[in-house]
């Protein structure tokens, strides 16, 4: 899997999103795109330039943008709304809950600049809590793709789905981990690597680090299964349980706070049906800060080394129990 990452160029998921909108916008005339004065950063500008009649800049007013999206969707449109994750999920949470999700409308919230990966902008712009608050809303689907090609597939699948989707995208360029052979189905995780000793479940930028960790663990004789859990809600419980039963220990890894993220969801599923040792990699009750992503990932314990250590710990707990 990993060797493919050397071939295609790195691309940020936000950039892949902009490209995907262009393609699907040409195929589907019902697609409307809204942005809140960040169209260059979110890359919706590409769509705006090509389809000016189906793009509306809503200015710096995210609450209104979400309500407008609901109104458009109620008239049969498939709407994409974009801004930074902190403003999409954070500022407009109640509009998303009451007017988009309660009405189960076809609004796809493509929120870019999620997580610590925003880097130098600092804590005010680093949205590390969005998975928790978005996945708590009934009807909402939450997806965090791991690379550019997967982002494109997610956009196309989101359009097919009837109901709201929260698409969590990043600012930083990331290597390509998936290939054309990887079928993307909402709610179905993808097993990137199979091993019998431990299961690592990751999403977004942490998938690459999970694959690197698996290689390191292999050197020490621990073979890991790595699951790219691109859909956090609905969670692929079946795949997690099947792998946990096989390996007997689980590590989760995400660029998000530990409360209410992927780790919480996986732990909840396991605790109910297959209570195996679990270790979680995520942000522990802290705000972010300015710095380049690599430095921040070290500071907040979101590294390959941290995943390796967590995997060894979980593996040890399994052996000693």
């Amino acid at each position: 899997m990993k060797e493919q990452s050397n071939k295609p160029e790195k691309i940020a998921t936000r950039a892949a999103y902009g490209g995907a909108l262009l393609e699907i916008g040409a195929l589907n005339k019902e697609i409307i795109v809204l942005d809140a004065d960040l169209s260059k950063s979110t890359t919706t500008k590409k769509f705006a330039d090509k389809f000016p009649d189906r793009f509306f800049n809503m200015g710096i007013a995210e609450a209104n943008m979400m309500g407008t999206a609901a109104g458009l969707a109620s008239c049969g449109k498939t709407v994409f709304t974009s801004t930074f994750a902190i403003f999409a999920a954070g500022r407009a949470w109640e509009q998303i809950r009451n007017t988009i999700c309660y009405c189960n409308l076809n609004v796809n919230i493509a929120a870019t600049h999620a997580g610590l990966g925003v880097g130098p902008d600092g804590a005010s712009h680093q949205m590390n809590e969005d998975i928790a608050i978005m996945s708590s809303i009934p009807n909402m689907v939450v997806i965090e793709p791991c690379d550019g090609p997967e982002t494109k597939k997610a956009v196309f699948e989101a359009v097919k789905l009837n109901g709201p989707v929260y698409l969590r995208l990043g600012r930083a360029t990331v290597p390509v981990l998936t290939s054309d052979e990887h079928v993307f189905k909402i709610g179905k995780g993808i097993t990137f690597r199979s091993g019998d000793d431990i299961t690592i479940v990751a999403c977004g930028m942490l998938v690459e680090k999970a694959l690197d960790a698996a290689e390191e663990l292999s050197k020490d004789g621990i073979e890991a299964t790595v699951i790219n859990m691109h859909t956090i809600k609905p969670l692929d419980r079946e795949l997690i349980l099947e792998s946990a039963k096989k390996t007997g220990a689980v590590v989760t890894a995400e660029q998000h706070v530990l409360n209410g993220g992927l780790g919480s969801a996986v732990a909840s599923a396991l605790a109910q049906e297959c209570p195996v040792p679990i270790e979680m990699i995520g942000i522990d009750n802290r705000f972010g800060q300015s710095g380049e992503p690599d430095i921040l990932f070290k500071e907040y314990n979101l590294t390959t080394e941290c995943i390796v250590a967590a995997a060894k710990k979980a593996h040890q707990r399994k052996s000693s129990s």
Binding site: I32, F56, A63, M65, T68, C75, K77, Q95, T99
Partner: peptide, 9 residues
């Protein structure tokens, strides 16, 4: 806001 969306549609 919802009315705005309907009007734009």
């Amino acid at each position: 806001s919802v009315g705005l969306g309907m009007a734009l549609a």
